[in-house]
Amino acid sequence: MKAAPAPANPAAEFRSGLIRMGLDPRKFDYVVALAGNPNTGKSTVFNQLTGLNQHTGNWPGKTVARAEGRFDAFGKKYKVVDLPGTYSLLSRTVEEEIARDFLLFGSPDVVVVVVDATCLERNLNLTLQLLDITDRVVVCLNLMDEAKRRGIEVDATKLEEMLGVPVVPCAARRGDGLSNLVEKVHAVATGAVKCSPVRLNPRPEIQRALDELTPQVAQVLPHAANPRWVAMRLLDGDETIMEEVQRGHLAHFDARPIEGQA
Protein backbone atom coordinates (compact mmCIF):
# COMPACT_ATOMS: atom_id res chain seq x y z
CA MET A 1 0.00 0.00 0.00
CA LYS A 2 2.94 2.33 0.53
CA ALA A 3 3.06 3.20 -3.12
CA ALA A 4 -0.54 4.44 -3.16
CA PRO A 5 -0.65 8.16 -3.84
CA ALA A 6 -2.62 10.34 -1.45
CA PRO A 7 -6.11 10.37 -2.93
CA ALA A 8 -6.77 13.48 -4.97
CA ASN A 9 -9.79 15.48 -3.92
CA PRO A 10 -10.98 17.84 -6.61
CA ALA A 11 -13.04 20.49 -4.86
CA ALA A 12 -16.23 19.97 -6.85
CA GLU A 13 -16.38 16.25 -6.23
CA PHE A 14 -15.62 16.76 -2.58
CA ARG A 15 -18.52 19.16 -2.21
CA SER A 16 -20.98 16.93 -4.03
CA GLY A 17 -19.91 14.03 -1.82
CA LEU A 18 -20.68 16.10 1.26
CA ILE A 19 -24.09 17.14 0.03
CA ARG A 20 -25.06 13.54 -0.52
CA MET A 21 -23.93 12.81 3.03
CA GLY A 22 -26.45 15.33 4.30
CA LEU A 23 -24.04 18.17 4.97
CA ASP A 24 -24.23 21.69 3.60
CA PRO A 25 -20.67 22.75 2.77
CA ARG A 26 -21.48 26.46 2.77
CA LYS A 27 -21.88 26.55 6.54
CA PHE A 28 -18.38 25.53 7.60
CA ASP A 29 -14.77 25.37 6.52
CA TYR A 30 -13.76 21.86 7.58
CA VAL A 31 -15.46 18.56 8.35
CA VAL A 32 -14.18 16.42 11.21
CA ALA A 33 -15.40 12.84 11.56
CA LEU A 34 -15.23 11.25 15.00
CA ALA A 35 -14.59 7.50 14.90
CA GLY A 36 -13.77 4.89 17.53
CA ASN A 37 -14.67 1.63 19.21
CA PRO A 38 -17.77 1.63 21.42
CA ASN A 39 -17.11 2.61 25.07
CA THR A 40 -13.99 4.67 24.45
CA GLY A 41 -15.49 7.93 25.62
CA LYS A 42 -16.17 9.06 22.06
CA SER A 43 -19.38 10.83 23.10
CA THR A 44 -17.53 12.61 25.89
CA VAL A 45 -14.97 13.89 23.38
CA PHE A 46 -17.83 14.94 21.09
CA ASN A 47 -19.58 16.82 23.88
CA GLN A 48 -16.39 18.49 25.03
CA LEU A 49 -15.61 19.64 21.50
CA THR A 50 -19.02 20.89 20.53
CA GLY A 51 -20.57 21.95 23.82
CA LEU A 52 -24.20 22.85 23.24
CA ASN A 53 -23.83 23.29 19.48
CA GLN A 54 -25.30 19.90 18.59
CA HIS A 55 -27.95 18.41 16.37
CA THR A 56 -29.16 14.88 16.75
CA GLY A 57 -31.10 12.87 14.24
CA ASN A 58 -30.80 9.71 12.25
CA TRP A 59 -28.56 8.74 9.39
CA PRO A 60 -30.66 9.16 6.25
CA GLY A 61 -32.75 6.05 5.75
CA LYS A 62 -31.32 4.28 8.82
CA THR A 63 -32.37 3.78 12.41
CA VAL A 64 -28.86 4.53 13.65
CA ALA A 65 -28.59 7.71 15.70
CA ARG A 66 -26.47 10.49 14.28
CA ALA A 67 -25.01 13.40 16.16
CA GLU A 68 -23.44 16.48 14.64
CA GLY A 69 -22.05 19.59 16.15
CA ARG A 70 -19.69 22.42 15.45
CA PHE A 71 -16.89 24.38 17.02
CA ASP A 72 -14.83 27.35 15.98
CA ALA A 73 -11.06 27.36 16.27
CA PHE A 74 -8.34 29.64 14.91
CA GLY A 75 -10.97 31.58 12.97
CA LYS A 76 -12.29 28.56 11.12
CA LYS A 77 -15.66 26.83 11.41
CA TYR A 78 -15.49 23.10 12.09
CA LYS A 79 -18.33 20.66 11.58
CA VAL A 80 -18.07 17.51 13.73
CA VAL A 81 -19.86 14.33 12.67
CA ASP A 82 -20.00 11.60 15.29
CA LEU A 83 -19.77 8.26 13.45
CA PRO A 84 -21.32 5.12 14.99
CA GLY A 85 -18.95 3.28 17.35
CA THR A 86 -17.49 0.21 15.62
CA TYR A 87 -14.77 -2.35 16.25
CA SER A 88 -13.90 -2.72 12.59
CA LEU A 89 -14.75 -1.53 9.10
CA LEU A 90 -14.54 -4.93 7.49
CA SER A 91 -17.79 -6.67 8.40
CA ARG A 92 -21.27 -5.64 7.55
CA THR A 93 -23.29 -4.26 10.42
CA VAL A 94 -25.26 -1.13 9.60
CA GLU A 95 -23.03 0.90 11.91
CA GLU A 96 -19.88 -0.16 10.09
CA GLU A 97 -21.45 0.49 6.72
CA ILE A 98 -22.39 4.03 7.74
CA ALA A 99 -18.97 4.80 9.21
CA ARG A 100 -17.19 3.32 6.22
CA ASP A 101 -19.33 5.10 3.62
CA PHE A 102 -18.88 8.42 5.35
CA LEU A 103 -15.10 8.01 5.41
CA LEU A 104 -15.03 6.81 1.82
CA PHE A 105 -17.49 9.16 0.16
CA GLY A 106 -17.98 12.04 2.63
CA SER A 107 -14.26 12.85 2.42
CA PRO A 108 -13.90 14.43 5.86
CA ASP A 109 -10.94 16.82 6.18
CA VAL A 110 -9.81 15.15 9.37
CA VAL A 111 -10.78 11.89 11.07
CA VAL A 112 -10.33 11.88 14.83
CA VAL A 113 -10.17 8.33 16.10
CA VAL A 114 -10.83 8.03 19.81
CA VAL A 115 -8.73 5.24 21.28
CA ASP A 116 -9.00 3.65 24.72
CA ALA A 117 -5.54 3.81 26.30
CA THR A 118 -6.41 0.95 28.68
CA CYS A 119 -6.74 -1.54 25.83
CA LEU A 120 -4.65 -0.08 23.06
CA GLU A 121 -4.11 -3.22 21.01
CA ARG A 122 -7.80 -3.86 20.47
CA ASN A 123 -8.41 -0.23 19.56
CA LEU A 124 -5.52 -0.17 17.11
CA ASN A 125 -7.34 -2.65 14.87
CA LEU A 126 -9.86 0.01 13.89
CA THR A 127 -7.20 2.73 13.77
CA LEU A 128 -5.09 0.72 11.30
CA GLN A 129 -8.11 0.08 9.10
CA LEU A 130 -8.86 3.81 9.15
CA LEU A 131 -5.31 4.66 8.17
CA ASP A 132 -5.78 2.37 5.20
CA ILE A 133 -8.65 4.55 3.98
CA THR A 134 -7.37 8.04 4.74
CA ASP A 135 -4.14 9.84 5.63
CA ARG A 136 -5.70 12.66 7.56
CA VAL A 137 -6.11 11.08 10.96
CA VAL A 138 -5.54 12.41 14.47
CA VAL A 139 -5.50 9.83 17.26
CA CYS A 140 -7.16 10.93 20.49
CA LEU A 141 -5.56 8.65 23.08
CA ASN A 142 -8.36 8.84 25.60
CA LEU A 143 -8.83 7.50 29.14
CA MET A 144 -5.18 8.24 30.01
CA ASP A 145 -6.27 8.88 33.61
CA GLU A 146 -7.91 5.46 33.84
CA ALA A 147 -4.83 3.79 32.31
CA LYS A 148 -2.56 5.49 34.82
CA ARG A 149 -4.81 4.44 37.69
CA ARG A 150 -4.50 0.82 36.56
CA GLY A 151 -0.75 0.96 36.14
CA ILE A 152 -0.67 0.97 32.33
CA GLU A 153 1.77 3.29 30.61
CA VAL A 154 1.33 4.27 26.99
CA ASP A 155 4.19 5.99 25.20
CA ALA A 156 2.33 8.56 23.07
CA THR A 157 5.46 9.82 21.32
CA LYS A 158 6.45 6.33 20.27
CA LEU A 159 2.89 5.61 19.14
CA GLU A 160 2.87 8.79 17.05
CA GLU A 161 6.14 7.74 15.47
CA MET A 162 4.93 4.24 14.65
CA LEU A 163 1.49 5.24 13.36
CA GLY A 164 2.79 8.24 11.42
CA VAL A 165 -0.09 10.52 12.48
CA PRO A 166 -0.48 12.93 15.43
CA VAL A 167 -1.37 11.27 18.75
CA VAL A 168 -2.86 13.42 21.52
CA PRO A 169 -3.12 11.98 25.05
CA CYS A 170 -6.44 12.99 26.62
CA ALA A 171 -8.66 12.47 29.61
CA ALA A 172 -11.83 13.73 28.04
CA ARG A 173 -13.93 13.35 31.18
CA ARG A 174 -11.76 15.98 32.88
CA GLY A 175 -11.25 17.99 29.70
CA ASP A 176 -7.51 17.25 29.69
CA GLY A 177 -5.76 17.40 26.33
CA LEU A 178 -8.71 18.67 24.32
CA SER A 179 -7.23 22.04 23.41
CA ASN A 180 -4.20 20.14 22.19
CA LEU A 181 -6.49 17.89 20.16
CA VAL A 182 -8.19 20.89 18.52
CA GLU A 183 -4.78 22.33 17.68
CA LYS A 184 -3.70 19.11 15.96
CA VAL A 185 -7.01 18.82 14.11
CA HIS A 186 -6.51 22.35 12.81
CA ALA A 187 -2.93 21.59 11.81
CA VAL A 188 -3.97 18.50 9.82
CA ALA A 189 -7.00 20.25 8.29
CA THR A 190 -4.96 23.17 7.04
CA GLY A 191 -2.13 20.95 5.86
CA ALA A 192 0.36 22.45 8.34
CA VAL A 193 1.05 18.91 9.50
CA LYS A 194 1.45 16.23 6.86
CA CYS A 195 0.64 12.69 7.88
CA SER A 196 2.53 9.69 6.58
CA PRO A 197 0.62 6.85 8.16
CA VAL A 198 1.79 3.29 8.55
CA ARG A 199 0.19 1.07 5.89
CA LEU A 200 -0.59 -2.58 5.97
CA ASN A 201 1.60 -4.63 3.69
CA PRO A 202 -0.45 -7.29 1.92
CA ARG A 203 1.12 -10.30 0.24
CA PRO A 204 2.62 -9.65 -3.23
CA GLU A 205 -0.23 -11.50 -5.03
CA ILE A 206 -2.74 -9.25 -3.30
CA GLN A 207 -0.64 -6.17 -4.14
CA ARG A 208 -0.61 -7.13 -7.81
CA ALA A 209 -4.37 -7.73 -7.86
CA LEU A 210 -4.90 -4.33 -6.22
CA ASP A 211 -2.67 -2.59 -8.75
CA GLU A 212 -4.80 -4.02 -11.50
CA LEU A 213 -8.20 -3.22 -9.97
CA THR A 214 -7.56 0.27 -8.57
CA PRO A 215 -7.67 2.23 -11.87
CA GLN A 216 -10.89 0.46 -12.83
CA VAL A 217 -12.48 1.38 -9.50
CA ALA A 218 -11.45 5.01 -9.92
CA GLN A 219 -13.24 5.01 -13.25
CA VAL A 220 -16.46 3.41 -11.98
CA LEU A 221 -16.65 5.29 -8.67
CA PRO A 222 -15.14 8.72 -9.31
CA HIS A 223 -16.35 10.03 -5.93
CA ALA A 224 -14.61 7.43 -3.85
CA ALA A 225 -11.88 8.98 -1.72
CA ASN A 226 -9.66 5.90 -1.87
CA PRO A 227 -10.16 3.64 -4.91
CA ARG A 228 -7.41 1.31 -3.76
CA TRP A 229 -9.30 0.58 -0.57
CA VAL A 230 -12.48 -0.08 -2.55
CA ALA A 231 -10.47 -2.46 -4.73
CA MET A 232 -9.32 -4.22 -1.57
CA ARG A 233 -12.92 -4.65 -0.40
CA LEU A 234 -13.91 -6.04 -3.80
CA LEU A 235 -11.03 -8.49 -3.63
CA ASP A 236 -12.25 -9.50 -0.17
CA GLY A 237 -15.75 -10.12 -1.55
CA ASP A 238 -17.58 -7.41 0.42
CA GLU A 239 -21.13 -7.60 -0.93
CA THR A 240 -22.28 -4.14 0.16
CA ILE A 241 -19.36 -2.57 -1.71
CA MET A 242 -20.14 -4.75 -4.74
CA GLU A 243 -23.70 -3.45 -4.73
CA GLU A 244 -22.44 0.12 -4.54
CA VAL A 245 -20.15 -0.49 -7.50
CA GLN A 246 -23.04 -1.99 -9.43
CA ARG A 247 -25.17 1.07 -8.84
CA GLY A 248 -22.23 3.42 -9.31
CA HIS A 249 -23.34 5.51 -6.36
CA LEU A 250 -24.22 5.39 -2.70
CA ALA A 251 -27.50 3.90 -1.69
CA HIS A 252 -27.53 5.00 1.89
CA PHE A 253 -27.16 8.69 1.67
CA ASP A 254 -29.56 10.77 -0.34
CA ALA A 255 -29.45 14.50 -0.70
CA ARG A 256 -31.24 15.09 2.57
CA PRO A 257 -29.39 17.44 4.88
CA ILE A 258 -29.86 16.71 8.55
CA GLU A 259 -30.89 20.33 9.10
CA GLY A 260 -33.91 19.67 6.94
CA GLN A 261 -35.14 16.87 9.17
CA ALA A 262 -37.58 17.43 11.97
Binding site: E121, L124, L128, I152, K158
Partner: peptide, 18 residues
Protein backbone atom coordinates in the same frame (compact mmCIF):
# COMPACT_ATOMS: atom_id res chain seq x y z
CA UNK B 1 -2.12 -8.14 8.78
CA UNK B 2 -4.28 -5.85 10.89
CA UNK B 3 -3.96 -7.95 14.05
CA UNK B 4 -0.23 -8.50 13.71
CA UNK B 5 0.50 -4.82 13.10
CA UNK B 6 -1.73 -3.78 16.02
CA UNK B 7 -0.02 -6.28 18.27
CA UNK B 8 3.44 -5.12 17.20
CA UNK B 9 2.67 -1.44 17.78
CA UNK B 10 0.89 -2.00 21.09
CA UNK B 11 3.75 -4.18 22.25
CA UNK B 12 6.24 -1.40 21.55
CA UNK B 13 4.18 1.43 23.10
CA UNK B 14 2.52 -0.09 26.15
CA UNK B 15 4.38 -0.91 29.33
CA UNK B 16 3.36 -1.73 32.86
CA UNK B 17 0.90 -4.41 33.77
CA UNK B 18 -2.80 -3.75 33.97
Amino acid sequence: DVYETASKIAGACVSGTD
